[in-house]
Amino acid sequence: MAEDEITTPRPVDDAELAIEGALRPVSLAEFVGQQKVRGQLQLLLDAARIQQRPADHILLAGPPGLGKTTLAMIVAHESERPLRMSSGPAIQHAGDLAALLSSLTPGEVLFIDEIHRMARSAEEMLYLAMEDFRIDIMVGKGAGATSIPLDLAPFTLVGATTRSGMLPNPLRDRFGFTAHLEYYEPAELERVVGRSASVLGVALGDQQKAEIARRSRGTPRIANRLLRRVRDYALVHAGGAAADIAEVRAALELYDVDGIGLDRLDRAVLDALVKRFRGGPVGLSTLAVTVGEEPDTVESVVEPYLVRIGFMARTPRGRVATPEAYAHLGVPLADGALDFR
């Protein structure tokens, strides 16, 4: 192989980037699931269009991967307005927010992801901006400091949060509409998988779609990620763009995703809880050390799904495994293992 073939990186395929972007629906009609939220958003956007004004500020709350960013893009697209994107961790000073707000054009949609992680000083500046489209810029320090008002172009703020309880009440109350996104049903995920498969050029039957949907933890982002791995497996092992049920299962097993969507870390936590601690109760820190992960990772990544499917319970004394967890692992129920007191 020639030296330039080794050292020269392969250019990114524009067609592949276009396909990845096409996985996101561009209208509420194309968006699968969240029927109630879609109807509420449609009414809000239609009213703003009739009155020829920017739509009210929108807060999208819910677990990761359910489509908050996609809905923000759809709001901008259906409003026929430009979209500006930022994130809470990137806004750590009031000056950062002032620069962002002052550069907005009339009617522009500003999307702030993880809005609960903004700096407190920036949050307080946002109160006035959302309500009166104005901010106050402080010039100078000490007794000689003065406040200079700066008018802003009317805009629509779309905030996304995975922890709405961390938002201060004054900020939450200034949103005209708050949407709570729910986990998807298997039938809805099958539709998501079917649409994404057609975009990616993967031929899947109903059984294959159902298999991927069942292992996707109620989350479209995970469904699309698993679909990509199935596509890769079919391409490498079958040499084509079609995947039968055996190839779908083999691809998902290769990536340690079991029949109900548990991955390696999920099973490690369950194994430790059931086999090492006889079902608990056990403290979060002890459980995290046992599986070699940070407590925050176990609490925010693993626990929500295990609690939702009924494999784990959180009690005042610690985490406890349920009979369903024992049954899934094929372990006999330990005596006294389910003391929830």
Rank of each mutant, 00 (worst) to 15 (best):
A2V: 06
P9S: 07
D13W: 03
D14G: 03
D14N: 01
E16W: 02
L17K: 01
R24Y: 01
P25E: 05
Q35W: 03
Q35K: 14
V37D: 13
Q40R: 15
A47W: 00
R49M: 13
I50K: 15
P54A: 14
D56M: 14
L59H: 06
P63H: 05
G65C: 03
T69E: 04
T69R: 00
V75G: 02
E80A: 14
P82M: 05
R84A: 13
S86R: 02
S86Y: 04
I91N: 14
A94Y: 04
A94D: 09
G95R: 11
A98Y: 01
A99H: 08
S103W: 12
E108D: 12
I112M: 01
D113P: 03
D113R: 04
D113H: 03
R117F: 02
A119E: 02
A122I: 00
L128H: 07
A129E: 08
E131F: 03
E131V: 11
D132H: 04
F133R: 00
R134M: 13
D136T: 13
I137S: 02
V139D: 08
T146E: 12
I148N: 10
D151P: 00
L152I: 12
L152N: 02
T156W: 02
L157R: 12
G159Y: 08
G159M: 08
A160R: 05
T161A: 04
T162F: 06
R163H: 12
G165E: 11
L167I: 06
P168F: 00
L171M: 14
R172W: 07
F175Q: 03
F175N: 09
G176M: 01
F177L: 13
A179W: 00
L181N: 13
Y184M: 14
E185R: 08
L189E: 12
R191C: 06
R195M: 13
V199K: 10
L200Y: 06
V202Q: 10
G205T: 05
D206M: 06
K209Q: 09
K209V: 00
A210F: 03
E211D: 12
A213Q: 07
A213L: 09
G218S: 02
G218V: 01
T219L: 02
R221Q: 06
R225S: 08
L227S: 13
R229E: 08
R231M: 13
Y233W: 15
A238L: 09
A241I: 09
A242Y: 08
E253K: 03
D256Y: 04
V257H: 02
D258H: 07
D258I: 14
G261A: 05
L262S: 10
L265T: 02
R267Q: 04
D271F: 06
F277N: 03
R278C: 00
R278D: 13
P281Q: 06
L287V: 10
T290K: 11
V291C: 09
E293S: 15
E293P: 05
E294S: 08
P295L: 06
D296V: 07
V301M: 11
P304W: 08
G310P: 01
M312H: 04
T315Y: 03
V320Q: 10
V320I: 14
A321Q: 11
E324G: 11
A327R: 15
G336C: 14
F340D: 10
R341I: 10
